[in-house]
Simulated assay, not measured.
Amino acid sequence: MLAAGIFFGLFFVVCLGLLVLLSRRQRPRRRGVRAPRPRVSILVAARNEQASIERCLRSLAQQKYPTGRLEIIIADDHSTDATAAVIEEFIRDKPQFRLLRVRERLGCTKDKSNALAHLCRAATTNYLLFTDADMALPPDWVATMLAALEPGVGVVTGITTAEGNLFGRLQGLDWLFGLNVIRVLAERGLPTSAIGNNMLLTRAAYESIGGLENMRFSVSEDLQIFQKVVARGWGFRHLCEPQALGISEAQPNFSALLKQRKRWLKSASGLPWYLTGLFGMYATFYTVLCWPGLFPLSIITGIYLAKTGFQTLFLAITLRQTGRREHVAVLLLYELYLCIMSVAVLAYTLWPTRLEWKERRYTLAEA
């Protein structure tokens, strides 16, 4: 009983602290209309994305940035569907776009990290913007990410959500919740991770770590890059504003979502202790709360409602900061979604099967 009391006391102290820090967020600086606009490279690794790649390319073609200062390179990573044909048709009359067919392996890389390594070699600018083929970016994305760069900053991360039906919107809340916790920590000088679907690297920062081809292979190459860049002394920025908000396609079903989250959870071993501790505390909340005979029903109900209240308020503030809106009923339903997912992902992760990602399988060591 005493240990459980300490656990929940610490849990709610952390929740209150995160809310205070979130409400006192650092405001984005004003961006001058005539800010410098250097040439930039937008890099997209695509594998079997024929259904979603055009949505991504359309959003990149609509960037409010001088076309002549953009090079957009899409790597076809051994697709077995019509991804390459869809890309070729879309970019036919758009000289800022280029299709790169990946066939050779560079250094220690393979699969997506190999495609990214090829993209970085093919890029001809000093600013590398990364996104995924299932993402759509706002028109001011390029300018907003560049404006966050300051002397000494090597990596900038935007924020991501998902949309669609109710299942997709709940996944979107999951993205916003986790990434805004990371952003709050980053604003207090605590490095955690970058998200490769919405990331900017300077060429100098990327070359300082030797490039992907000289890094041990991992399916979490974004986390790996971020940690090595920070270890080299580069600064980092995390943005939470509408102009840096990417919209990812939601996982289509529960099975696909479990595979995605298993990969994320297995990769969490590389995260710093303070973020692992925060997410670990959140994941074990239900186990401690519902331990047989530990608390009477009235106390269980009170703790559960308090947690739901903190969580809903955190999400409401996050949505406001990113220019999004959501029904209160969906915010409350997120608690049920989170409870189910916490148990299901933990069980699925412990199940002795390989990781599956983009129709490829990996050992746990490669996570």
Rank of each mutant, 00 (worst) to 15 (best):
A45Q: 08
W175G: 00
L212Q: 05
L355E: 11
V153K: 06
R30M: 04
R55G: 12
R237D: 04
L137S: 04
Q311P: 00
E359N: 15
L346N: 10
I159E: 02
A204T: 11
A329F: 13
R188I: 00
D222N: 11
A122T: 11
L185P: 01
T144Y: 07
R105K: 15
F285G: 07
T109D: 06
L179Q: 15
I72N: 02
R101F: 00
A162Q: 14
L173A: 05
L278G: 02
I72H: 01
V230P: 09
G293I: 09
S208V: 11
F167I: 02
V86P: 00
L315M: 13
L16D: 10
D134A: 10
A45I: 00
G152M: 07
R203F: 10
T109I: 01
R37T: 13
T312V: 15
E213G: 14
S220R: 11
R58A: 14
Y127D: 04
A46P: 10
L245S: 03
I247E: 03
K266R: 12
R203Q: 11
A244G: 08
V181A: 12
N165K: 12
G152Y: 09
V102R: 01
E213A: 15
P296K: 04
N253M: 04
A344T: 07
G5L: 14
A75W: 00
Q243G: 03
V328K: 05
I340L: 15
A84D: 05
I195G: 02
L245T: 03
I303P: 01
G211D: 10
L257F: 12
W175D: 03
E366C: 05
I303E: 05
T308V: 14
I182D: 10
A147M: 03
L297R: 14
K259Y: 02
V44D: 01
G189K: 08
A329D: 09
A306S: 12
G323D: 06
R34H: 13
G323W: 08
A186S: 15
R92D: 07
D81G: 03
T301P: 00
W357G: 03
V181W: 09
T301D: 06
E241H: 08
Y348E: 09
L137V: 13
P138Y: 08
Y206W: 11
F7V: 10
C339N: 07
K262D: 09
K358Q: 14
R24L: 13
I74P: 02
P28G: 02
L200K: 06
R92L: 08
L313T: 11
F254W: 15
T125R: 06
R232N: 13
D222Y: 03
A133D: 14
L119P: 03
A75N: 01
A122L: 00
S41T: 03
L146G: 08
T308C: 12
N197F: 05
G5F: 12
R31K: 10
R98K: 15
Q96H: 12
T318W: 00
I317E: 12
R261T: 07
L319D: 05
C15G: 02
C290H: 14
G154I: 07
I72D: 01
I87E: 02
D174R: 14
A3R: 14
D140Y: 06
L179Y: 13
V328C: 09
T83G: 01
N48G: 06
L201P: 06
P36D: 05
F285C: 09
L149C: 06
K266Q: 10
G196P: 05
L346C: 05
F285A: 06
G211K: 07
L319A: 01
A204D: 14
L332H: 14
L128N: 09
